[in-house]
Amino acid sequence: MKRGLSLFVLICMILGFIFLYAPIIVLIIFSFNKSKLVTVWQEFSFDAYVNLVNNKQILDAVWVSLKVASLSATLAAILGTICGYVLTRFTKFRGRFLFLGLVSAPLVMPEVITGLAMLLMFIQLDGLLQNIFGIEPVGRGLVTLIIAHTTFATAYVAVVVQSRLAGFDRSLEEAAADLGARPFKVFFLITLPIIAPGIIAGWLLAFTLSLDDVVISDFTSGPGASTLPLVIFSKVRLGISPEINALATILILIVSVGIISANIIGRQREKKN
């Protein structure tokens, strides 16, 4: 960059950052507000945080969200990797194009439709289970949430893994086979470690998408299995409470620490190399 920033660029930058971060900063500031009314500043206090720790509903929701997100992200990572692998490696099977479309459709499908479809399917499944196997209806809950989240997250993982595999040098696998590794070992010793960053990226994407999701969760969750966004949403309808602000602040803190440490580790690795 040429010496320093011009005034114009500097102003643009400041305005941009204000635009991006002002709401979050306001939110953080008000998490330390003593007043029960979110919009009126009274005085500095940690009341909201104390209340948060004692709010079982929110803590339960956090726990549900984390469970759903990590399980569905893991399932999606496995399924998505298989999809991505098949799509890049088996380029000549019948119906590949259809399969390709079907895998990526959830990316563009309106969430309301996916959610509704899921709901209808779960109701039908419940009916089937009851009529054929005589199993008591399970209803909506943790399991249906995980299935629904896995479904849409798989598409994202598949796309990420596919792009990682597209740049993969096939001669590495051939070399491994040539050196005596059976196909199974080639996959686990060579292919998997090399595409691992893609799978991890896909997992993280699936994890955040799941944590974040409201619409599909709303359709597929049931009593006792409310995710955090659902609880926040329902609480906001009754008026915003400072506890939500406190919770949001903690989440932001965790995310920032995560990103910053990931960056530091990445940079140190780069230096070492």
Partner: peptide, 15 residues
């Protein structure tokens, strides 16, 4: 993987 041959690839194909 069972042949008594080994190959040096043009791209070297180092892992």
């Amino acid at each position: 993987y069972e042949r008594p041959t080994n190959m040096m690839f043009q791209s070297y194909a180092l892992f």
